[in-house]
Design a protein around this nucleic acid. Structure first.
Length: 276
DNA sequence: AGTGTATCCTGCAGGC
DNA sequence: TGCCTGCAGGATACAC
């Protein structure tokens, strides 16, 4: 899926496109991703105006006036496209699941091929309790290397699994976990609590560099991901290890390896990231 | 506590 | 060309 940088890119693209628009109606074409019934969901946003568009973890939040927000988790293949007829070079929605029609005639389509994404319309109260389950935002000023180090110290979990757990850190997925571990020279199989202070500092810096760099590039397009205007984005060419198994490490020339950890691919350079 | 497995889905690439 | 297998940015539930 879209991880933090992709969700952030979508939010930034969506903001000018839909802020201030009034929702005329919500049409549910595929109810799978809806965490409530169509009949309950559809009326909630009707007549409401989009006050702001925000991101928390990998979720896109469309905050409405009157105290509700539409929370979209994009899953693996979710997209939010402010059109049905794509601009030049962008893709038409192929698997529209929910379509919002605004009073001025414009649209927002939640398109999701694999239908792992979810859409909800939550009250402030409901959102607050949901939000409490996410760990800190890695790009927040309050997220320090010291915090990361002490949080890692309590877990025996492999550090790659630790980074993917949204309750520990919000927004990191498989691509950026791989990249941050590569840049900091930490093997993905290392136990979280084995990471020492200097390593935690390097990992902290790498996480932030990688996430900021990917936001600057508008995210990483591997297969399905598209930004808010349906275009591809540029971080893919900067990847150090993700999806590069069998290729030469850009730093030392060793062959990048792939291992399976908790049923998901982990990519690493055996030289730059020595095994525990 | 943490891991492996399975599940929800569709689509694509690669091997034969 | 088709068929088969494995793989995919996520999240969750289950047994062990």
């Amino acid at each position: 899926m879209p991880e933090l940088p992709e969700a952030e890119t979508i939010v930034r693209g969506l903001r000018p496109a839909i802020t201030g628009r009034r929702i005329a109606r919500a049409e549910v074409l595929k109810p799978d991703g809806l965490l409530e019934s169509k009949r309950s969901f559809a009326p909630k946003g009707r007549g409401r105006t989009v006050a702001r568009v925000e991101r928390r973890a990998k979720n896109v939040l469309i905050v409405l006036d009157g105290g509700r927000r539409i929370a979209v988790n994009l899953g693996m293949t979710g997209r939010l496209l402010p059109f049905e007829t794509p601009p030049r070079g962008a893709r038409r929605p192929t698997h529209p699941a929910v379509r919002f029609r605004f009073a001025d005639g414009s649209l927002l389509v939640f398109d999701d091929t694999r239908r792992f994404g979810t859409v909800e319309c939550l009250t402030d109260e409901e959102w607050r309790s949901r939000e409490a389950r996410f760990g800190p935002e890695p790009l927040d000023d309050g997220f320090t290397a010291g915090m990361l180090h002490s949080a890692l110290a309590t877990s025996r979990s492999p550090v790659r699994s630790w980074l993917l757990d949204q309750r520990r850190i919000a927004g990191v997925g498989n691509i950026y976990a791989a990249e941050a571990l590569f840049l900091s020279g930490v093997n993905p199989l290392r136990q979280a609590r084995s990471i020492d202070g200097p390593e935690a500092e390097r990992l902290h810096a790498a996480l932030r560099d990688v996430l900021r760099g990917a936001i600057d590039e508008g995210g990483t397009t591997i297969r399905d991901y598209r930004n808010a205007i349906g275009g591809e984005s540029g971080y893919a060419r900067l990847l150090g290890v993700y999806g590069r198994d069998g290729a030469a490490c850009r730093r030392c020339g060793s062959t990048v390896e792939r291992a399976v950890l908790s049923n998901r691919s982990a990519f690493f350079c055996p030289t730059c990231q020595p095994a525990p």
